[in-house]
């Protein structure tokens, strides 16, 4: 990323932010019987960082889908309750299909705000892109027009961060790891030289580059999916009682005003408070046998 702050009259200054993804509030294994414990640990981990992030970006599936609207509303409230304990950072969210695909995003908008928007922060242009509320993996023609119009005021060298839920390329379409009109989004972004895309949905790390655009998937805060290259059927990785937060975590992104790429740092979750067999057994008592998958 060439520069983090050269537009909008803001003084250039480095800053860092954190990406969280797929908290799935309301889900209680299997495979992961710990409910919101990883999310709560992530909040504690963020609050313990030496250089606190100025932004926390959540790339979808804040909640796990629920059969009843009342239950889903409770899950949004619980997400807000837990995330409100993050100190000193603005929280920016986009919906995942669990949040917004069944009702077109109505409840998400009620609790969290718009499903798509953009903003500038310290010279970086952020675009929150909704590829779920259409009910299928798509951005849609209208949102695409909005994005192109939004981008039009920026020079091709502007630093741009797009955050969304699903991958914008065909990562694994048969696992629904794609966006049907993702090519059109990428074509609209292609003229810009400093674009980073952050996304979730796949519950595992992934890096992909198309032209100069770099795309990073984040781990989840509920359970991991295995590598699709070596796994024939989409199925969550088994829960490991000895390492309850294995393959979960958060991402810290550090900007550099002197130029160069963003620094991507994967941060592990604090597990000390959950250590020991007794502590783990106490936690497992909170789980139930809801076997719904992602």
């Amino acid at each position: 990323m060439r520069s983090l702050a050269e537009l909008n009259g803001e003084a250039p200054a480095p800053f860092s932010f954190v990406q969280l993804s797929d908290t799935h509030v309301g889900f209680n294994g299997p495979p992961d019987p710990l409910g919101t414990k990883a999310f709560e640990s992530a909040v504690a981990t963020i609050n313990g960082l030496k250089n606190p992030p100025e932004l926390v970006i959540v790339t979808g599936d804040l909640t796990h889908d629920a059969d009843s609207p009342d239950e889903h509303a409770k899950r949004f409230k619980l997400f807000k309750q837990i995330s409100s304990k993050i100190g000193g950072a603005q929280i920016k969210v986009v919906p995942g299909e669990n949040d917004a695909a069944l009702d077109g995003g109505d409840m998400f908008r009620e609790f969290m705000g718009p499903t798509r928007y953009s903003f500038d922060y310290r010279g970086v242009h952020f675009i929150a892109l909704d590829n779920v509320s259409a009910g299928r993996p798509a951005v849609g023609a209208e949102q695409l027009r909005w994005m192109k119009s939004d981008l039009a005021r920026f020079p091709k060298t502007a630093p741009i961060i797009v955050f969304t839920h699903r991958p914008l390329f065909d990562l694994k379409p048969e696992w629904e790891w794609f966006t049907s009109d993702g090519d059109e989004v990428m074509n609209a972004l292609a003229p810009y030289e400093n674009v980073t895309v952050l996304y979730g949905h796949i519950h595992r790390e992934n890096f992909h580059q198309a032209g100069s655009t770099k795309m990073y998937a984040a781990r989840s805060l509920i359970f991991a999916f295995p590598d699709p290259a070596t796994t024939p059927v989409k199925k969550p990785a088994p829960f490991d009682k000895a390492a309850p937060f294995k393959n979960l975590g958060i991402r810290r992104v550090n900007g550099n005003v002197d130029g160069g790429d963003l620094q991507i740092e994967e941060v592990e979750l604090a597990t000390a408070e959950f250590g020991g067999t007794v502590g783990m057994d106490q936690m497992l008592k909170h789980g139930n046998n809801d076997s719904k998958d992602e």
Partner: peptide
């Protein structure tokens, strides 16, 4: 061998509809 999926989100078991 090919997989056909439901890509119209239909509930919390949607991910296994194939």
């Amino acid at each position: 061998d090919f997989v056909v999926i439901c890509d119209r989100y239909c509930g919390s078991g949607h991910g296994s509809m194939r």
